Computed example of a mutant assay.
Amino acid sequence: MADETLYEHAGGTEGLHRLEEHFYASMLADPLLQPLFGAGRPGHVEHLTWFTAESFGGPDRFTEELGFAHLIDVHRNLRITEEQRRRFVELYMAALDVVGLPDDGPFRDAVRSHVEFGSQVAMQNSNATTDDELHPIREVPIWTWDADKAGR
């Protein structure tokens, strides 16, 4: 597995698109998370797919087409709570099973680490009242198999 990226292990863009499509639908149906997303946004599944693909060692389409500032902007003023953050992680991990992504421990540990980190950043940015309160990350983090050290 060491030579294979998380992107490749997940089935590339196709596998990640299936994941993000199911995950996004589950968020829109969830009473705790739906208020953050309203009726949904066209293109959101594709943007999630691009972000995850890039984070997992795939193409850098998110950075090239949207940029990290977009990610900060879409989370500003959402006021994400810890309860919503935890539910986000729970639904994401459940979506892995539903769409049949690999269930080996190293992959699941890396994905959980990625989603925990990302949801913490999103929560911090969503509650920031000044730019100084934003999380310092300003580029898509690249995640690896070493879940304890990835992306930071």
Results as ranks from 00 to 15, higher is better:
1 M>W: 07
1 M>Q: 11
2 A>M: 13
5 T>P: 06
5 T>Y: 06
6 L>A: 00
8 E>N: 03
9 H>Q: 11
9 H>L: 03
13 T>H: 14
14 E>M: 12
16 L>P: 12
17 H>P: 14
18 R>P: 04
18 R>C: 15
19 L>V: 14
20 E>H: 08
20 E>P: 08
22 H>W: 12
23 F>A: 12
28 L>V: 00
29 A>Q: 09
29 A>C: 05
31 P>K: 07
32 L>Q: 12
34 Q>K: 13
34 Q>V: 14
35 P>S: 07
36 L>C: 02
37 F>M: 04
38 G>D: 03
38 G>V: 15
38 G>E: 05
39 A>W: 14
41 R>S: 14
42 P>S: 10
43 G>T: 07
44 H>R: 15
45 V>W: 10
46 E>H: 09
47 H>V: 11
48 L>F: 02
50 W>C: 00
51 F>P: 00
51 F>E: 01
53 A>T: 03
54 E>M: 00
55 S>M: 03
55 S>L: 02
57 G>I: 04
60 D>Q: 15
61 R>H: 14
62 F>K: 06
62 F>H: 00
64 E>V: 10
64 E>D: 13
64 E>T: 06
65 E>P: 11
65 E>W: 05
67 G>E: 02
68 F>C: 01
69 A>D: 14
70 H>L: 09
71 L>Q: 11
71 L>W: 07
73 D>F: 12
75 H>R: 02
75 H>V: 11
76 R>A: 02
77 N>L: 08
79 R>L: 06
79 R>Y: 11
79 R>W: 10
81 T>E: 05
81 T>M: 10
82 E>A: 11
85 R>M: 08
86 R>S: 15
88 F>K: 15
89 V>R: 09
90 E>I: 07
90 E>G: 15
90 E>M: 10
92 Y>H: 11
94 A>T: 09
94 A>Q: 04
96 L>V: 15
97 D>R: 07
97 D>T: 03
100 G>S: 13
101 L>S: 13
101 L>P: 04
101 L>R: 05
103 D>W: 11
103 D>C: 13
104 D>N: 07
105 G>M: 05
106 P>L: 09
106 P>T: 13
107 F>G: 03
107 F>I: 05
107 F>S: 10
108 R>E: 09
109 D>K: 12
109 D>E: 08
109 D>C: 15
109 D>Q: 15
111 V>M: 07
111 V>L: 11
111 V>R: 01
112 R>A: 04
113 S>K: 13
113 S>P: 10
114 H>S: 05
114 H>V: 10
114 H>K: 04
116 E>D: 09
116 E>T: 10
117 F>V: 08
117 F>N: 11
117 F>C: 04
118 G>T: 08
118 G>E: 13
118 G>R: 03
123 M>R: 01
124 Q>K: 01
125 N>C: 13
127 N>M: 04
128 A>Y: 04
131 D>P: 08
133 E>F: 01
134 L>Y: 05
135 H>Y: 07
135 H>A: 12
135 H>I: 12
136 P>N: 06
136 P>R: 03
137 I>Q: 11
138 R>H: 10
139 E>D: 10
139 E>Y: 02
142 I>P: 09
143 W>A: 12
144 T>C: 09
145 W>V: 12
146 D>A: 13
147 A>N: 07
148 D>G: 14
149 K>R: 12
149 K>F: 07
151 G>D: 14
